[in-house]
Computed example of a mutant assay.
Amino acid sequence: AAHQMDRRADRLAAGLADVRVADRVAKLRFPDPAPCGRTPLTATGLSKSYGSLEVFAGVDLAIDRGARVVILGLNGAGKTTMLRMLAGVESPDTGEVHHGHGLRLGYYAQEHETLDTDQSVLDNMRATAPGTSDVELRRILGAFLFSGDTVAQPAGTLSGGEKTRLALAGLVCSAANVLLLDEPTNNLDPASRGEVLAALATFRGAVVLVTHDPGAVEALAPDKVLMLPDGVEDSWSADLAELITLA
């Protein structure tokens, strides 16, 4: 009976080891943001049209140091387009985006277009933080579950979840004081999603968030909301929470 119990304990322990491996998760923590002025990012009179379709017009936005802003709007209202403009990836038809003193932007793109798919995982990190040693970059990549030969793997061969982890690892290197996040919890397993939400909750810089994930908004605890396409900027209210999944 004792031998049978030992064998059963061994089988249970082996199963628990499998679970531990499967549940490994990147321990995500954004570093303290770089110092910046009181209002590091502003936008005035932004508009965008595609042909005869006007997406939004005359949008003004001011992102103060440490601000927590969520952008809401139905599909097609231009939420991703707005983030791309703020990130300098896309130009507005009218209006301007102004960089304040000490601005350091970190942009997470929903479709991972900030990654160079032809370059390796490690080379993508080098491009994000050119002054950081390979030893430190490999350490950060290891925290995001990239190790061994995987750091030499082309980013284009990664899965959606792996690309998300690589893009987030790049943000950790950036010391950004304004994060522009477009659906950062997509493609993540529940444990990794939890790490992202915990990191959002403790980040001390400014965040502009686009998401369909109510948990992400709850973790962010926004103080302002930008409603598109009208471009109305207002204080956040819990009454708006029901619009998150509809957006």
Rank of each mutant, 00 (worst) to 15 (best):
A13N: 11
S52R: 11
V70N: 04
L181M: 09
T157V: 05
L226M: 04
V217D: 03
G51S: 09
M125Y: 06
T39L: 09
G148I: 07
A206P: 08
T185L: 09
R20S: 13
G88K: 01
A26T: 04
A109P: 01
L243K: 13
V121A: 10
A14P: 06
R165G: 03
A175I: 02
L61P: 02
A26N: 06
R126L: 06
R24N: 09
A219T: 02
V207D: 05
A2V: 11
T81W: 02
E195A: 14
F203S: 03
P130E: 09
L46D: 01
R193L: 10
N75G: 07
E111C: 06
D230E: 15
Y108M: 10
A199I: 02
A247C: 14
L86N: 02
G66N: 08
S237V: 05
R7C: 10
D64L: 09
D189N: 13
S133Q: 10
V25F: 07
G78S: 03
R104N: 06
Y107R: 01
P33W: 03
N177R: 05
M125E: 03
S133D: 14
I244V: 15
I140A: 04
A247I: 04
D239C: 11
S133A: 12
R7T: 13
G95E: 02
G73C: 03
R139L: 11
P31A: 01
E233S: 15
A175T: 09
A13S: 10
A34S: 15
D118C: 07
I244Y: 09
T128Y: 12
L86Y: 01
R7F: 11
S159P: 04
R7A: 14
D18S: 13
L240E: 05
G215S: 15
R84V: 01
Y50D: 10
A62R: 13
G66S: 10
S47K: 03
L12E: 12
N187G: 06
S49I: 06
A169H: 00
G156L: 11
V70P: 00
A241D: 14
S47I: 00
V151G: 02
D234A: 15
H212K: 06
L197W: 03
S159E: 08
A247Q: 12
A169D: 03
D118H: 14
R193W: 11
D213N: 13
Q110A: 07
V69D: 02
G15D: 12
L137C: 08
E183W: 05
S235F: 13
D93T: 05
M227N: 02
E136Q: 15
F203N: 01
V225Q: 09
T42L: 07
V55F: 05
K48F: 04
L86R: 00
P222Y: 12
T81P: 03
S192D: 08
G231P: 02
V210W: 00
T202L: 13
S91W: 08
V69I: 14
G51A: 08
L180V: 01
D60F: 06
T185D: 05
A143E: 15
S47C: 05
G215T: 12
